[in-house]
Nucleic acid binder design. Structure first.
Lengths: 228, 228
DNA sequence: GCTCAACGAGAGCAGTGCTCTCTATTTAGT
DNA sequence: ACTAAATAGAGAGCACTGCTCTCGTTGAGC
C-alpha cells in the first residue's frame, strides 16, 4: 500500500467522523445543524471543516443521502425478511420499518421529508436514494401482479394521468398497470402522511394507541390496493 | 372615543403591518423569517419590533394562526359553496381548495405542516385553528351519516383504536362511527401527503399532470370512505 | 532534499435574535 | 394645567451563525 493512501485514509476517516458528529448533533439539537458546533466537538476550528465540505449545505446533503440509504435499508430488509408470498405481510413489514426508523431518527426524517430548507435545492445525488422506500413498497405490488396473487383494479383514469403513470411504470415497474400504480402511490403518500403526523405531534394527544392506529391505517391502504 | 384609544389603534395597525411585511418576506424569501429584515422594511430598528412581539417565535405563532384561519376559511367556504347533498362534490371541493391555498402560499403551508422549527413548540392557541381543515372534511362524513346518504363501513378495529376514535367522535362528531372516522382520517392524512409531495417537488418532474393526478387520488380516498 | 499541495488556526465580515440603556412622546391622574 | 407614568423608538452591544482569507506547518511525490 503506497504511502499516499494513508493521507487519503485519514481524510476519509475525518469525513466520516464529521458526519458522525453532525448526525449526533442532529439527534440532540434538532434540525438546525451548526457547523461551528460540530467543529468545536471535534476540537477543530470552524474553518477547518471547509477542507472537507465546501459548505454547510454539502454536509447536509451528505447526511441526507446517508439517511435515505438508512431508511431504504430498513424498509428493504423488512420487506425481504417477510414471507415473499405474503404480500400483505410484506406491506405491513415495510410500513412498520419505515415508521420505526423515523421514530428512531426524527431529526433525520425531518431532514428528508420536512419542509425544504429555504435556498436549499436537493442535488441530483439524492433522487435515487430517495426513491428506495417507495420503490420497495410498489415492488410488492409488482411481485403480486407477476405471480397472479394480486388482481389489478380497473379504475378509469383520466387519460393524461394514465399516460404519466404508464411512463413511470415502463421505467421502473414493467408490467404494472397504471391504476394499480396509482393506488400504490396512494399507499406511499399515506405512509408519509401517517409518519409525519405521528412524528410532528399532530395526533399524540388525541390518539394514545398510535402503533395500533398506524397498523389499521396501513391495513386500510392494503385493502384499497387489494392486497390479499 | 377617548383619546387613549388612538394609541391603541396605532398599535394595532403596527401589529398588522408587521405581520403583513413578515408575510411578504415569507412569500419571497422562504420560511426563515428574519426579524431584522422585517424591521428594515418598516424603516425601524430591530429592537423596536420587540415592543409588539416579545420574540421571533411569537411573531411566527401569530402568522401561523392567521395562516391556519386562511386555510380553514378556504376549505370551509369551498365545502359550504358546494351542493350540500353532493357529498363527493363537497369532498373534492374541500380538497381542491386546500391544495389551491397551499400552492398559492407555499411558505405559509410549510410553516403549518413542515418540519417543526427546532425549539419551537406550537402554543395552545394554534390547536383550534389547526383543526378546522380536518374538521371540515370529516364534517362531510358526519352529514352523510346523519341523512343516510353514507353507510358507514363495518371494519373490525383493534379495541384500543376503536376506543380512541370513539372518544374523538364523542367530542367532535357525535354519531360518527369509529370505522368511518378512521377512514375519514385516512383521507385527511392522504390530502396532507398529496399536497406536501406536490409542494416540495417530490413528483413534479415525473408527473406533469398534477391537477388531474390530485383529483384521481382524492377520488380514491372518496371511494375508500364510501362517498356516493 | 525540495517543492507543492493539503491541513489547521486565527482573524475578520456580514448577518442573526435578543437585551439593555437612553431619549422623546403620549397618556393618565390630580 | 402640571406632573408622573407608561410607551415608543434608537442605538450599542452580546453571543452566535456561515463563510472567506491569510498565515505557518506538515507531509507526500519527485
Amino acid at each position: 500500500m503506497p504511502a499516499s493512501s494513508i493521507r487519503a485514509r485519514v481524510r476519509a476517516e475525518m469525513i466520516d467522523e464529521i458526519k458522525a458528529v453532525a448526525r449526533r448533533h442532529l439527534a440532540t439539537d434538532g434540525a438546525d445543524l451548526s457547523l461551528r458546533a460540530v467543529a468545536r466537538d471535534m476540537g477543530m476550528v470552524s474553518s477547518a471543516i471547509y477542507r472537507y465540505f465546501p459548505s454547510r449545505d454539502d454536509l447536509l446533503t451528505a447526511l441526507i443521502i446517508e439517511a435515505y440509504h438508512a431508511l431504504g435499508d430498513a424498509v428493504e430488509t423488512a420487506d425481504a425478511t417477510a414471507d415473499r408470498a405474503d404480500l400483505r405481510g410484506r406491506w405491513h413489514a415495510a410500513c412498520r420499518a419505515a415508521r420505526a426508523w423515523a421514530l428512531a431518527h426524527p431529526a433525520e426524517y425531518a431532514l428528508l421529508y420536512g419542509s425544504p430548507v429555504p435556498g436549499y435545492a436537493a442535488p441530483v445525488d439524492t433522487v435515487l436514494p430517495a426513491q428506495r422506500p417507495p420503490l420497495t413498497l410498489i415492488g410488492i405490488l409488482r411481485d403480486g401482479v407477476a405471480d397472479g396473487r394480486l388482481t389489478p383494479p380497473d379504475d378509469d383514469l383520466p387519460a393524461p394521468v394514465r399516460a404519466d403513470l404508464a411512463e413511470i411504470a415502463a421505467g421502473l415497474f414493467p408490467g404494472l398497470p397504471a391504476p394499480l400504480l396509482a393506488r400504490g402511490m396512494a399507499g406511499w403518500t399515506q405512509l408519509f402522511g401517517l409518519i409525519s403526523f405521528d412524528l410532528f405531534g399532530r395526533l399524540d394527544p388525541v390518539l394514545p394507541h398510535r402503533d395500533a392506529y398506524f397498523d389499521h391505517q396501513t391495513a386500510l391502504m392494503a385493502d384499497l390496493i387489494g392486497l390479499p
